[in-house]
Amino acid sequence: MISSDLPAYRAWADTPLTERPKYSVVIPAYNESERILPTIGAIAVHMSSLGEPWELIVADDGSTDETVELLQGLGLANLKVLVAQQNGGKGSAVRRGMFAAEGDVLLFADADQSTPIEQFADLLSAIESGHDVAIGSRAAEGAEVTNKSLVRKIFSKGLNLLVRYGFGVPFADTQCGFKMFTAEAAEMLFTHQIVDQFSFDLEILYLAQNRFDLTVAEVPVEWIDAPGSTVDATKVAVEFLRDMAHIKWNDLRGRYASANHEWPKPASSTAALAS
């Protein structure tokens, strides 16, 4: 017996959209050949079951393994694979994905499915209730975190205290790889983004709070630590502290006063959202 979600998935997999997608899911990927296919399978089945037109975008970040070849060989009609010739950082990959996305609502999700795609609805509720940005949070009340080591918990808590009280970004978790934007908010934020590395999330939230006065909902999510992370925690922490200083410095120098990247889409693509 074929269960109910498979026909919707088959249609999405086989037939190119003839209308603008309502949702875009962006996955940044760097050397993810081991993990990307299960993640795509889980996301594709769940998103197709929602009954709305949607697209999947994988923004390669200069992978040196077979990530790109694997993705290009899938033949999924509504999967875009953005190929980068060199590694530019997670922030640059997410930005390229956002720039290529055509949906009304844009989600970026990590390639390891550590925040299960089933949490999509919770963030979407926040967007539909009027927020410009909804961020998955592993630290908000109600979040369920599994397999996160004690060292990593302490590490995250320490960095978060710095972010909250030293940086003025009042969220319990700025780094969860599961964030949703209206297309208008994505245009504002990602055209002004400068940080291309891991802490681009922090810059995005800083801009949302301090530059554009966007409304941000912090949504508790289920999060399962994924073994085989390609992230080096110590290196990331040093970069994170350095980037916090850079972001403040960039702001003081007025570097966020105008866009740093051109939004590569016609204005009408976001104007339609206001209606």
Binding site: M1, S3, D5, L6, Y9, L37, P38, I40, G41, A42, A44, V45, H46, S49, L74
Partner: peptide, 24 residues
């Protein structure tokens, strides 16, 4: 297999390697 697991088998081409049956 559940829908996502069935699709994961397909995308990884492991559906051809395993014997997959419905419970019925």
């Amino acid at each position: 297999p559940s829908d996502p697991v069935r699709v994961i088998f397909e995308l990884t081409r492991l559906d051809a390697a395993f014997t997959i049956q419905d419970a019925s």
